[in-house]
């Protein structure tokens, strides 16, 4: 028996290479390896061979069978990869083409609230606590305790909404968060390192830079040995921390009844980074808020010994801060809650 095993294998492989689907492949496999196949016939005829040849040729046949098996497996894998490829190719979509849901995935926190959070974080990092107080106040907390007696000309700085509660006591909507400073000091827990954020009210007709309802953040430090230099240092550190490196602060003399010395603080114009533009009237600086050393009369009003303790206070508008940072031309948009505005920030 002279089977040319090599030819058999080679022919089988040639046939295999023409197969490109799994059904045919499995049919072919049956054909190639069945008892009626050339290999099967060869194997069944082994019994007729002499013993010495039987072993040798048997091994050759087995080798040829293995070779065929692995060629089939290889082919199977090739076909499977091809099928997978075709299937996935048919699955094609344009990933950038999707129907935008009318329900946005997330909402936006109000830009003023977020600004307030960020400001709080800066001061918390500097060791300040965050204090909140009532929006409805008495004349005492909003004015008198702050060294502003009734009809003091300085009251003209704060146009006030008064409330009608049918009481002799003057009740009003706070015009600044300073009454919370008084309430914090009244508690008498010294030293104080505190900020006071919150909503305030002034009877101003709204315009692009003013709203009758607005948000303010004030700071108060009362400790032994607190100086004007400490005030300047706190303002400078805060300015750089919040607005970023390159933005600095400066103080200029001003007047508030509740601080002495008093100052206005300005920061490097955030629009032009100090080189001068229309926003800063070409000065390179924009006014942010007021500050000063707590007036001894204020300490007297809350029963703090001004010979022993000194302190400083500062305050500015959160809305103004947001307006500057996000370059909002008209502040009135902040209260409209217009989605087209809110979704931008």
């Amino acid at each position: 028996m002279d089977y040319n095993l090599e030819i058999i294998v080679q022919e089988a492989k040639d046939t295999l290479s023409t197969i490109d689907n799994l059904e045919e492949l499995s049919r072919l496999r049956n054909t190639l390896l069945s008892k009626k196949s050339q290999l099967g016939i060869a194997r069944s005829s082994l019994a007729t061979l002499p013993l010495d040849q039987r072993k040798e040729i048997g091994a050759k046949i087995e080798l040829a069978r293995k070779e065929l098996e692995s060629a089939i497996a290889e082919r199977r894998q090739l076909i499977e990869v091809k099928i997978r490829k075709e299937k996935l190719a048919a699955d094609e979509i344009d990933i950038t083409e999707w129907l935008e849901s009318s329900t946005p995935a997330r909402g936006h926190q109000h830009i003023v609230q977020r600004t307030r959070d960020e400001l709080e974080d800066v001061f918390v990092g500097m060791g300040f606590s965050v204090n909140e107080g009532p929006e409805v106040e008495t004349d005492w907390y909003n004015f008198e305790a702050l060294n502003i007696p009734p009809a003091h000309p300085a009251r003209g700085m704060w146009d006030t909404f008064y409330l009608d509660l049918g009481e002799p006591e003057t009740v009003l909507l706070r015009t600044h968060t300073s009454p919370t400073q008084i309430r914090v000091m009244e508690r008498g827990e010294l030293p104080i390192y505190a900020i006071m954020p919150g909503r305030c009210y002034r009877r101003d007709t709204p315009d692009s830079r003013h709203l009758p309802i607005f948000h303010q953040i004030e700071g108060l430090v009362v400790d032994i040995g607190i100086s004007f230099a400490n005030l300047a240092g706190t303002i400078e550190d805060f300015t750089t921390a919040y607005f970023g490196a390159g933005i600095h602060s400066r103080l200029r003399p001003s007047y508030f009844p509740f601080t002495e010395p008093s100052a206005e603080f300005e920061i490097t114009c955030t629009i032009c980074a100090g080189s001068g533009c229309r926003t800063c009237s070409h000065t390179g600086w924009i006014e942010l808020g007021g500050c000063g050393m707590v007036h001894p009369a204020v300490f007297e009003a809350v029963g703090i010994d001004s010979e022993r303790w000194t302190g400083f206070a500062f305050g500015f508008g959160i809305d103004r801060c947001a307006q500057m940072r996000y370059q909002i031309p008209d502040m009135r948009v902040l209260m409209e809650n217009d989605y087209r505005f809110m979704k931008q920030l």
């Binding site: 709080e120 001061f123 918390v124 990092g125 500097m126 060791g127 300040f128 606590s129 965050v130 030293p191 390192y193 430090v221 400790d223 607190i226 100086s227 004007f228 230099a229 400490n230 300047a232 240092g233 706190t234 303002i235 400078e236 550190d237 400066r250 103080l251 200029r252 003399p253 100052a263």
Partner: peptide
């Protein structure tokens, strides 16, 4: 005012939100 050198005070307290 600009001749007064800024010095930040060190708060002896831990700043924390309630």
């Amino acid at each position: 005012y600009s001749t007064i050198k800024p010095v930040r005070p060190r708060s002896p307290k831990v700043g924390v939100l309630s």
